[in-house]
């Protein structure tokens, strides 16, 4: 079905050419989580700076990848856009309005347009509900389709769109495999006819061949329903395959942002370079020829991040100034942004 559609449109990834309408504008987003001590009168003793001043724009129709290791703040960024966390500071502009100022009633309309697909299809589906009920529930809650028969028709349609037979509507999640469950998660996200979907490690828990099936499905849906994705993942190979642009995060900061092809072929930030170098490529001959430069040490604690550039303690290019000056994201080439003073 959609195979033909996508070939006709020939959606080449790795380039942001042709995307110019800003859909979501994230400005100086900060999310600090308090660390408290004391049981009865908790007092704040420190802050975990999960996201510490991140700005980027998401263009309509593009897939923006957010990569980084655990604790870099990529998931928290996604949760802030969904308003599942109330950001400490910053703005998230969606259709001209800062949605961080919205109350829960105003958010209802936004939630129809922004949906999410989580990593673990085992814990994001209610085990006591049938698949049909899971997919129908958001339509019921938001009064999208009030007629029960119509709703069931749409459930079957969504299942089919996601590559599942209509009969799956009567099954429970535990009767399905991981890949099938992830398809249910996708069908549920599509139920609201969203414009923007945040995919948080959406294919990371799946086996190679199933993962490829779901990646293809996400691409087909993107073309068919004109979706915009924020694709949060630690898997750089998947991100290279599916994303038009890629943002690299480290310890709550955005360190590099560029078109996919540009970022993977010409990484500029020392962290991005070391990160790409660490990813093994499934070809033994290529691997033999690669110099394996290993990044030293581990990610510091976000409670007490290093002063200056947060990457300087592990950086092979660090100079004295990096300990003091916080590097700002700057555009070194058209569309290629780097937060490093030594580039």
């Amino acid at each position: 079905m959609s195979e033909a559609v996508s070939q006709k449109r020939n959606t080449r990834t790795g380039s942001s050419e042709g995307f110019d309408e800003v859909l979501v504008d994230v400005r100086d987003l900060k999310m600090y989580f308090p660390v408290t001590e004391g049981v009865f009168v908790p007092r704040v003793v420190a802050q975990v700076k999960a996201v510490d001043g991140v700005s980027f724009q998401v263009f309509r129709g593009e897939t923006l990848g957010v990569v980084g290791e655990s604790g870099c703040g990529k998931t928290t960024t996604g949760r802030c856009i969904l308003q599942l966390e109330k950001p400490t500071a910053g703005e998230i502009i969606f259709y001209g309005d800062d949605i961080t100022k919205y109350d829960s009633k105003q958010m209802i309309d936004v939630r129809k347009k922004i949906q999410v697909i989580f990593q673990d299809p085992y814990s994001s589906l209610n085990p006591r509900m049938k698949v049909g009920e899971i997919i129908a529930e958001p339509m019921k809650v938001h009064n999208i389709i009030t007629d029960e028969a119509e709703r069931q028709k749409r459930v079957r349609y969504l299942l089919n769109v996601c590559g599942l037979a209509s009969a799956f509507a009567d099954r429970y999640p535990h009767e399905m495999s991981g890949g099938q469950r992830q398809r249910v998660g996708i069908a549920r996200a599509l139920a609201m006819d969203p414009e923007f979907i945040i995919c948080d490690e959406a294919v990371s828990a799946l086996d190679v061949s199933i993962q490829a099936q779901v990646i293809n499905l996400l691409e087909d849906l993107r073309d068919e329903f004109d979706l915009t994705y924020l694709f949060i993942s630690h898997d750089l190979s998947v991100v290279r395959h599916i994303c038009h642009r890629v943002a690299v995060m480290y310890l709550g900061n955005l360190v590099e942002l560029a078109d996919g092809d540009e970022l993977f072929e010409n990484p500029l930030h020392p962290y991005t370079r070391l990160l790409l170098n660490a990813v093994p490529i499934p070809d033994p001959d290529i691997e033999k020829g690669r110099a394996h430069e290993i990044i030293k040490g581990e990610i510091p604690s976000p409670i007490n991040p290093p002063p200056g550039c947060v990457f300087h303690p592990r950086c092979p290019m660090a100079v004295d100034n990096c300990k003091k000056q916080i590097p700002q994201l700057r555009e070194v080439k058209p569309g290629h942004w780097v937060a490093c003073t030594e580039v």
Binding site: T13, G179, S209, E219, V238, I281
Partner: peptide, 23 residues
């Protein structure tokens, strides 16, 4: 089929992945 299912970080995306169907 496994080799055709893995996205590669070192290559520009030329075509869609070509995974095996089914489970």
């Amino acid at each position: 089929a496994l080799l055709k299912s893995v996205p590669r970080m070192d290559r520009q995306r030329e075509a869609k992945l070509d995974p095996v169907d089914g489970q």
